[in-house]
Simulated scan of single mutants.
Amino acid sequence: MFTGLIQGLGTVHPIANDKLQITCSQTVSGLILPELALGDSVAVDGVCLTVVEILPQAFIVDASPETRDRSTLGRDPEVPVNLETSLRVGSKLGGHFVTGHVDGTGYLREAVQTSTSWEMTFVTSEAQVARYILPKGSITVNGISLTVANCNSEGTWFTVAVIPHTYRETNLQYLRPGSWVNLEGDILGKYVEKFLRSGSTQGQVSEDFSVESLTPAFLAEHGYL
């Protein structure tokens, strides 16, 4: 489990079909490596990976072909990756619950700098991602916890407002129109949808439930408000 608050950047170096070496700068190494142990989980651009070896300024993780096929890992070695170690009991939860199980990918359509932030618009054609995108909802982009500022009703595009600190300290600064990103929807929304689709033991909720029917009145009727 992660929070979506990035601790630093690293670079990806494929060293085998199923292994990646993540190299960190000296500063980032000092933040991440001292508490890292074999078997720990690290979110690399939002993808939860298991540490199998620790080096002086890097660590090695397993990455199955399935993981690499369904994420952006290794697609653009010139772009640094965002890194976050797993959430520990008692730690502050400053973002939102992030599993590191990427739902799919999307790409940057445009990034516009304003006086107070960067407004970045992303596009996805993958239904398993789009269904969980809604205004003011949480979304994870390359492992970064962000809030949806605007989106279309289908969720196939959305805009986020990125504060200067986040833009400067993550790999969002390296993205250009067309750059691919990993996307993960809010896990709480997934569970709510699952419960409503399945219905109660008395079968009070129909199997033909649709996301569009999630209105405040519907949620109140079924005990969520």
Results as ranks from 00 to 15, higher is better:
117 S>R: 14
110 E>K: 15
2 F>H: 04
9 L>H: 12
119 E>G: 00
126 E>I: 00
46 G>V: 00
24 C>Q: 07
27 T>Y: 15
114 T>Q: 05
211 V>K: 14
33 L>D: 00
108 L>I: 04
222 H>R: 15
213 S>A: 14
153 S>T: 08
40 D>N: 13
223 G>V: 08
67 T>E: 07
101 H>K: 07
78 E>R: 15
63 A>H: 10
134 L>D: 02
122 F>D: 01
225 L>S: 06
69 D>W: 12
143 G>Q: 07
94 G>F: 12
133 I>E: 10
140 T>D: 06
150 N>A: 11
194 K>H: 10
77 P>Y: 08
174 Y>Q: 07
78 E>A: 13
179 S>G: 03
221 E>T: 08
65 P>K: 11
78 E>D: 09
35 E>C: 10
45 D>N: 14
10 G>I: 07
66 E>F: 15
172 L>D: 00
12 V>I: 15
107 Y>A: 01
114 T>H: 14
41 S>N: 03
152 N>C: 12
62 D>M: 06
146 L>Y: 09
195 F>V: 04
9 L>K: 15
135 P>Y: 15
116 T>Y: 14
165 H>M: 06
182 N>K: 02
71 S>M: 10
75 R>T: 01
73 L>G: 01
152 N>E: 08
3 T>E: 08
174 Y>M: 08
117 S>T: 08
100 G>M: 08
142 N>F: 06
179 S>P: 03
114 T>L: 09
77 P>Q: 13
215 T>K: 04
168 R>G: 03
14 P>F: 13
112 V>C: 07
168 R>C: 01
206 S>G: 05
83 L>G: 03
126 E>K: 01
145 S>K: 14
123 V>W: 14
175 L>P: 00
198 S>V: 04
128 Q>N: 09
155 G>E: 06
79 V>W: 06
174 Y>G: 01
40 D>T: 05
160 V>R: 09
206 S>L: 11
127 A>C: 01
159 T>P: 06
206 S>Q: 08
216 P>E: 01
49 L>G: 03
22 I>K: 15
157 W>N: 04
142 N>P: 00
174 Y>W: 14
65 P>C: 09
201 T>G: 05
147 T>N: 10
185 G>R: 05
178 G>Y: 14
169 E>Y: 14
64 S>Q: 11
102 V>H: 04
49 L>Y: 09
200 S>W: 15
193 E>K: 14
49 L>M: 11
131 R>V: 04
106 G>K: 02
28 V>L: 11
189 G>F: 12
30 G>L: 10
174 Y>C: 05
191 Y>A: 01
18 D>W: 15
70 R>N: 02
74 G>F: 14
115 S>H: 06
145 S>C: 13
21 Q>L: 10
42 V>E: 04
204 Q>D: 08
131 R>K: 13
80 P>M: 10
177 P>T: 05
182 N>E: 01
179 S>H: 01
171 N>Q: 04
70 R>W: 05
153 S>W: 09
220 A>T: 04
118 W>H: 13
223 G>W: 12
176 R>F: 10
41 S>L: 07
97 F>K: 02
58 A>Y: 13
151 C>Y: 11
192 V>G: 05
154 E>D: 09
169 E>T: 12
